[in-house]
Computed example of a mutant assay.
Amino acid sequence: MQMNIDIPVIFIHGMWLHASSWEPWMRRFKKAGYVPMAPGWPGEPEDINNARRCPALVANKGIEDIAAHFRKIMAPLGSKPILIGHSFGGLLAQKLLGEGLARAAIAIDPAQIKGVLPLPFSQLRAGLPALGNPFNKSRSVALTAKQFRFGFGNAITEDESNELFEKWAIPSPARGLFEVAFANFNPRAASAVNTRNESRGPLLLISGGADNTVPDVTTRATYRQYRKSAAVTDMQRFDDRGHSLVIDHGWEAVARDCLRWLDDAVL
């Protein structure tokens, strides 16, 4: 593996996980020679306990609010960063890459961008804690351990799922989920991505074959959205892995493959 001094890597978390859930990844990427960082979403406290105690701090933040937050973080960097996003972070990574703001991006189990049509039942069920009440749009919503087990921890043991829930889960703003759910009926949807940009950097989409929150069929449909661009777009599937694949016991295998892809596609 090459040493990649001074290339910034920004990790973007998704709904219901705290930014500190990327800490093992940051250590791994730092060891590989990158300069990693994992900023929280706008308003998100750095301390996970404060994030749980003060859910209103992140309430009513939509996709564009979060994207603008990361554009501001990226602006003073000396070079374009590599973006690695999970779930909603994967959507944001694609959006910012499509704007030409990143050197490359990896979207892991990414939330649906505008134009993706499949909506499997498991995905709908995973989003119901937020989408089930229209008044949640302006609120911050937390998962129960049972809901986390279905949406994140279905492919691991219940004990591990509960451990991850206690360690990393936080309330998240529901607005972005509503924006994604109705994106294909909105000509100005915030989840729109410039998938035809041929001058953008390489993109890797990663799918968990057992994911309930972003099923493999959804990620494959996202991959097809890029068919009219000549820019590098790759896809990899991890069979029998669920939405927790970036934080559970098998996270390092995913991180290792991400590093290998970056060596081949970017450096």
Rank of each mutant, 00 (worst) to 15 (best):
I206D: 00
A145I: 10
E179R: 10
S199F: 12
L205M: 15
L203H: 05
L124T: 11
L124N: 10
S140G: 11
W168S: 01
S199L: 15
A183Q: 01
A190I: 07
E179L: 02
P129D: 05
L128K: 14
P129T: 04
P187K: 10
Q147I: 08
A102D: 01
W168N: 03
R188M: 15
F121S: 15
G201N: 04
A183V: 01
S122I: 14
F185S: 13
S140N: 09
V217C: 08
F178M: 06
R188K: 15
K146G: 10
I108Q: 00
P110M: 01
G153C: 10
L164F: 03
S138M: 11
I170P: 02
D216A: 14
R200G: 00
A183T: 01
G115M: 06
I170K: 09
I170Q: 06
R196I: 09
F178A: 04
L131A: 11
L128V: 13
A192T: 09
R200I: 11
S172D: 12
A189M: 09
L101A: 10
S161W: 01
L205R: 02
S140P: 06
N212A: 14
S199Q: 12
E166D: 13
K167A: 14
Q112T: 07
I170L: 11
N197D: 12
F121C: 14
E99F: 08
K114F: 12
G201F: 07
G132F: 06
Q147Y: 03
N212T: 12
A183H: 00
S191L: 02
I113S: 02
T144N: 09
G151K: 00
F150P: 00
A189W: 04
T157N: 14
L143V: 06
I206Y: 00
S191M: 05
L131E: 08
L204S: 05
L117M: 13
A190S: 13
A104G: 11
N133H: 05
E160N: 09
N184M: 07
N184E: 04
K146W: 07
F152W: 08
P215Y: 00
F178V: 07
N184D: 14
A102Y: 00
T157C: 06
A192Q: 05
P134H: 11
T144Y: 06
L124W: 03
P118G: 13
K137A: 12
A210V: 09
L205Y: 01
A130T: 15
V193Y: 00
V214L: 09
G201R: 01
D211C: 04
K114Q: 15
I156R: 01
A126S: 13
K146P: 04
A104F: 01
L117I: 13
R125T: 07
D211M: 07
A189C: 15
K146N: 05
P187H: 09
K137I: 13
F148G: 06
F165C: 03
G100I: 09
A107Y: 03
E99D: 12
G208S: 11
F135E: 13
A169P: 05
L204M: 09
T144I: 08
A107E: 02
T157E: 14
N186Q: 15
V141F: 04
N194G: 11
